[in-house]
Design a protein around this nucleic acid. Structure first.
Lengths: 229, 229
DNA sequence: AGGATGTACTGATAAATATCATATTTTTAG
DNA sequence: CTAAAAATATGATATTTATCAGTACATCCT
């Protein structure tokens, strides 16, 4: 039997915790759960969404394709985050595509449940607003980082971010393994440049690698690098 | 005598139009109007705001200082826009500073009026949410532009943006005159690089200049440049 | 297992952009 | 109105980053 939103642990991380019992029941009755394998798409850029996706497990990259054919990853969404909110609220097509970067389990929630609650329950709306305010601040930070920091600094920062947000496995590797291409798309650089800098970090003893996997060896030095020495 | 929000034209551009008569009256009674000269600061990065600022006239740059001492302009806010909303909603210090880039008139609205309405009037909250969703989308676009387009393309785009959003004067110059440094801070590049490209555009007949003032001569070519030919 | 395909890596070079130095023009202040 | 200060402009050069070419791994697939 499908699990109920009322008992879902990830709910405490997102705006759904501000829903009333009845509202939550309605969401739970109308939601569908979806299992995705790494690499599968949740939605594409320009799609009209009929609802939002709540991440139960795994990680999705939200990215936008630019004219020159490169993807820019704007955000990595994980447990508890609600994807597609922005488009549903603004009643627009999505400006980003969402693709699983690890195996995932997501719940699709039809937009009617959301929009109805947005109109009736100010607690919920305010909660969503707070989340969006947070996302906006993060986006501002990304803008400043991309335009003012070197690629080396941004890659160092990305590794620290990945450790902080997704943790490490028992062998000391970052728990979320991204391809070199994905790393370069987070950072906004050419894949070769990213690889070159990863090799350099390895030579300098800042990180260790095994295949795609990357582990942080000298967090302090990486932090200094991000700050600009 | 001070004018009343109820009759303020700029209100129709922002979330305040979703307020009830009583709420609006309360805002109007508690607001104060402030006149700023070009270059003056509305608030600084890290300030705790006791309210928001509604722009009646003029333009403000919202920027963030980076570790290397350069400012990155994240947004230009003009008539009808509400500045400081994000921080007040998230109950955080500001992540950006706001400085007038032209003479301005702004209304300061104490945060109590705002937060109270946010909790009581879902129409208003939803309206604020829609605006923030829009800002977030724009921020995503900026991220992609900065990381994927050349400085030349971004400067061309900035000029088209300035024309579209702030218009031209009778002589065909952009109505909003920014210093070369501000232009470089919008685009995220070194001032000298921006100046060099402006000179090049002038030589190629894409724009004309007179002192700081810049006018668009060949909009089509600029647009092609932004798209990547 | 073994070819096939994609991903990771490295080197050589080119292109884009930043930095430093300095000249020129514009704006500001007295 | 004029001297000083600030902003704009341009040249020379250094640095950063992208691109192109090619090799080495790894993993996928029947």
């Amino acid at each position: 039997m499908e699990s109920r939103c009322e008992n879902c642990i990830v709910r405490q991380f997102n705006s759904l915790r501000a829903m009333s019992k009845e509202e939550l029941k309605q969401v739970s009755d109308s939601k569908t759960t979806k299992v995705l394998k790494k690499g599968e798409s949740i939605f594409g850029e320009g799609d009209k969404l009929n609802g939002v996706y709540c991440v139960r497990s795994g990680v999705s990259k939200l990215s936008k394709l630019s004219a020159n054919g490169k993807d820019q990853i704007v955000k990595l969404a994980s447990k508890g985050e609600v994807i597609g909110q922005r488009s549903v609220i603004a009643e627009e097509s999505t400006n980003l595509s969402a693709i699983a970067v690890s195996d995932m389990e997501v719940c699709f929630i039809p937009k009617e449940s959301i929009t109805h609650t947005l109109q009736k329950n100010p607690d919920f709306t305010l909660e969503v607003l707070r989340h969006m305010a947070h996302d906006l601040k993060e986006a501002d930070d990304v803008i400043v980082n991309i335009s003012q920091k070197t690629v080396k600094q941004r890659i160092a920062e990305a590794f620290l971010y990945l450790k902080k947000n997704f943790g490490e496995d028992k062998d000391g590797f970052l728990a979320l393994t991204l391809s070199r291409e994905d790393i370069s798309n987070v950072v906004g650089t050419a894949t070769e440049s990213a690889i070159r800098i990863i090799s350099e970090f390895k030579k300098k003893g800042l990180i260790h690698t095994s295949g795609k996997k990357i582990g942080i060896k000298d967090e302090k030095k990486l932090l200094e690098m991000v700050e600009g020495f």
